[in-house]
Design a protein around this nucleic acid. Structure first.
Length: 401
RNA sequence: GCCCUGGUAGUGUAGCGGCCUAUCAUCCGGGCCUGUCGAGCCCGGGACUCGGGUUCAAAUCCCGGCCAGGGCGCCA
């Protein structure tokens, strides 16, 4: 007999004999009658009377069971039906005690939950985060496909870093040093010289920063886009369009324009001189909208590949509920200027040989951005800690499970 | 890298020099109960992060290690 899922049961199955399988989440023993709460994709009740009671009592919670019996409609019971048990098999016994309570009634710290993440993921409210990740990622991809982007995959094992190397994970590449990519930045820019015109990538990025905050990870998913023949305003429009589409379709949040604040304007709003974390938080509190841009950062706050505009740059950061979720801008596409910028940043031109080559042989003006996917989910769902949005997060102290 | 906090049964907690043979809930084991749905009731089980020190006396105070949480810097 084939197993059927509890969410497939409707009135047409009433009074038929069926087999359902899942985890034994709970057991309520009333003596001559025992109620089992079993979980497959959802919860359902198995009701047990008579000789089977002794057998059923011995099954530890969270064991995998196979339950055969007749479906009975009953308005008093969850789902409006119950399985009257006729035969039960234990397919795999769970050990006891469990490392945490999979129903969530007894709370557990995030650290405890992450140590036993698979058990933690048995909770419906925990998996909701990951259902949202799927929805959001699907909307992101569809947005780019609809806009004519090509999806690319750039290498995650790289020779040189992008801004020095202090935040890179070093590894041994057949006897020579290599690094885990902290961003696809250089590759997606190079691709602008190929004629692809519009590219995007969703891939892990690695940062060896010793950060220990609720919004940092050592490995996170970066959504990167780069577009040729555009200026900064076009890039802003594209990112705004992306966020609006995703929020509308994945979270039911209505379309609107994001405020675009000049760097100086944003600082003076809160009477501050420096754009530190405190200023960012204060600005976010002052702005009514959940999402807003800050434009034209000073050159010393931005990397060499951003196009300068006097003392400022054609750059922006995007904030969502006080979290910096994206940064980008117009890139420097003029070879001599780019070389000067690299030198001014104290970097070695020789290290950027392969990056620079396409800039010598016909590189169009271009711009783009990187968006922190995990942070986006964190802000969208209002979660305290970005680690909650990742199945198996990696941070300064965690490389397991 | 810097700064601040904290580590008590499997899980989450109370206790913060002697009343601790360590609280409560959940959990696990046993018992009662035929309609529970966070079932209920009774009995039992299980813990002071590690090392050193102070003291007549340490879960409690001090120092160090380990682990964890948070903030800053940096960033997505």
């Amino acid at each position: 007999m084939l197993r059927i899922y509890s969410d497939e049961i409707s009135e047409k199955y009433f009074d038929k004999e069926l087999k359902l399988e899942g985890w034994l989440q709970d057991l309520r023993d009333l003596g001559k009658i025992v109620f089992l709460v079993v979980r497959d994709r959802n919860l359902f009740q198995v009701t047990c009377k008579g000789d089977l009671i002794k057998e059923v009592r011995a099954i530890p919670k969270e064991s995998i069971i196979s339950a055969k019996g007749v479906i009975k409609g009953n308005e008093e019971v969850m789902n409006g039906w119950e399985l009257l048990l006729e035969e039960v098999k234990v397919l795999n016994k769970a050990e006891t005690p469990l490392p945490l309570d999979p129903t969530g009634r007894t709370p557990a710290d995030l650290d405890t939950r992450l140590n036993s993440r698979i058990i933690d993921l048995r909770r419906r409210d925990v998996t909701e985060t990951f259902r949202n990740r799927t929805r959001v990622m699907r909307e992101i991809r569809d947005f780019y496909y609809d806009e004519g982007f090509i999806e690319v995959n750039t290498p995650k094992i790289v020779r040189a870093g992008m801004e020095g190397g202090a935040t890179l994970f070093k590894l041994d590449y057949f006897g020579t040093p290599a690094y885990l990519a902290q961003s696809p930045q250089l590759y997606k820019q190079m691709l602008m010289g190929s004629g692809f015109d519009k590219v995007f990538e969703t891939a892990p990025a690695f940062r060896a920063e010793e950060s220990a905050t609720r919004r940092h990870l050592s490995e996170f998913i970066s959504v990167d886009a780069e577009i040729a023949f555009v200026e900064m305003g076009d890039v802003l429009d594209n990112l705004e369009g992306l966020c609006n589409r995703v929020l509308e379709r994945a979270a039911g949040i209505k379309l609107k324009e994001f405020p675009r604040l000049e760097y100086d304007e944003a600082l003076s709003m809160v009477g501050r001189e420096e754009m530190d974390r405190k200023a960012e938080v204060e600005i976010s509190e002052k702005v009514d909208d959940d999402l807003f841009f800050i434009l034209n950062y000073p050159a010393e706050e931005k990397p060499f590949y951003i196009m300068k505009k006097g003392e400022r740059t054609n750059s922006f950061d995007l904030f969502y509920k006080g979290l910096e979720i994206s940064s980008g801008g117009q890139r420097e596409h003029r070879y001599p200027v780019l070389c000067d910028n690299i030198k001014e940043s104290g970097l070695n031109l020789e290290d950027f040989k392969y990056y620079l080559e396409p800039f010598r042989y016909g590189m169009p003006p271009h711009g783009g951005y990187g968006l922190g996917f995990d942070r986006f989910i964190q802000a969208m769902m209002g979660l305290d800690n970005v680690r909650e949005t990742v199945l198996f997060p990696r941070d300064r102290f965690r490389c397991h499970p």
